[in-house]
Design a protein around this nucleic acid. Structure first.
Lengths: 107, 107
DNA sequence: CATAGTGTTATAGTTAACTATAACACTATG
DNA sequence: CATAGTGTTATAGTTAACTATAACACTATG
């Protein structure tokens, strides 16, 4: 939500209790997740008021997630792509060039 | 290992006990994972002998994993790429076109 | 002060996955 | 049969994450 701009910097996060109710989950579970955001320096907690998106959170998140994605997730995704014999073409255009025709349409 | 051809069809999987020892893990845990492969029809169990890669397993796996990847994983990866302001094009072709130059080299 | 909304802490219980250990069932080999 | 290697089942214990419930602490508002 922060990355997508749904939550701007300074905005309050939906309250622990509301999220807990909406997802039928224990408030403690929500709180713990929110605390992780605090630990990452993205969110700050103001007792009695709520939890708020920190100034600069979006850039911090963007940089951090970019790094994590490029160094950890993407390499693994690339391995999978390679293992499955997929091509960049297959993935980007919804119109794959006619490659080797498949034996059968399986379903 | 099956996709990469390390395990050919008909080959025995490393025994439950060996894997358990190698990864310092309970044999039951390994067994359960192997059972999942049996449930997927990729592997068959021969009591007293071992677990073996089924004939046709590689193609079955290839088709199944292709579908799973294209329908589930890749869309999510694309969302992340988009959210992070990265380009799938740049990531797939290793030769990124010169796009907007970044403000700073961060480190 | 009372109220209604926040985050926070505490205590006890539940659950799924995993561990530890032992024993059982089966097969090829000699 | 004995042996050594397989998969399999059973029992009890451990652990991390989550749940249920209640209470505490704080803030803006009236």
């Amino acid at each position: 939500m922060i990355l997508d701009g749904v939550l701007k910097e300074g905005d309050p996060l939906p309250s622990v209790r509301k999220v807990a109710a909406e997802f039928r989950v224990n408030p403690l579970t929500v709180l713990k997740s929110y605390q992780e955001l605090v630990d990452e320096g993205l969110v700050e907690s103001r007792r009695g008021l709520g939890m708020f998106v920190v100034e600069g959170a979006r850039n911090l998140l963007l940089d951090g997630e970019r790094q994590r994605f490029l160094e950890e997730e993407w390499p693994r995704v690339q391995e999978v792509i390679h293992r499955l014999g997929l091509s960049a073409d297959d993935l980007l255009n919804n119109a794959p060039r006619r490659s080797k025709p498949r034996k059968k349409g399986s379903g």
